[in-house]
Design a protein around this nucleic acid. Sequence first.
DNA 1: CAGAATCCTCCGCGATACTG
DNA 2: CAGTATCGCGGAGGATTCTG
Lengths: 122, 122
Amino acid sequence: MARIRHRSLDCSPGCAVEATLQLIDGKWKGVILYHLLAEAPDGALRFNGLRRRMPNVTQRMLTNQLRELEADGFVHRTVYAEVPPRVEYRLTARGRSLEPVIRALKAWGDAHAALPTETEAA
Amino acid sequence: MARIRHRSLDCSPGCAVEATLQLIDGKWKGVILYHLLAEAPDGALRFNGLRRRMPNVTQRMLTNQLRELEADGFVHRTVYAEVPPRVEYRLTARGRSLEPVIRALKAWGDAHAALPTETEAA
DNA sequence: CAGAATCCTCCGCGATACTG
DNA sequence: CAGTATCGCGGAGGATTCTG
């Protein structure tokens, strides 16, 4: 598993929230997970396939985040011994279990486009 | 609204996920929101009330995160002109709209305690 | 095509001390 | 009680170059 980003959890019941956030935190992890989830049914994506869907990520960071997702057991990496090389990324069962979380994040983002609306003010 | 943490969003549909994550990212925001949501029905909490629920946060960071949540329109801050001072924090409507997100985060954290289970391996 | 290796910058976060 | 004010570090993450 990836290194602990934040040393200690302060375990009140809120601890679970904190713990989950730590795992999907990392600038690109949420989006990666989203794209893998979106490729139904057994959504496998290749490295450059992911890059194409995320124009602003550098290879260094994409590799980096994928490795962490792999270490945390969310993503499985399949390397085909071919030339040119082919590598596929797909979600593990654990990765798929994050679907409700990602859906909630996306739903909220879609609904509350960016800025606070006036009706939400108070 | 708080400063943009990550410069540019790469707006594919995954953008919404990224945008939401940016707002609740910040080491303590998730837990703060959780505790405010947990205090039903109109859950107001005072500064030290929050501190008590989050043993590991420093005042500096608690203040900091609360200010950002306020700037992002999630939390309302009420100052009572009294001695000793009293300040209450409560969620705005926008803040309450995050409930499904926080619930999803907590549900996942509770279910998948920490480490990957074997059944989740593949 | 899918990366590895380096270098470097910025700022999130913590520790500590002081205050109306 | 509910903050501010400083100081400093560690590491996330970007830019660039090279490779099987």
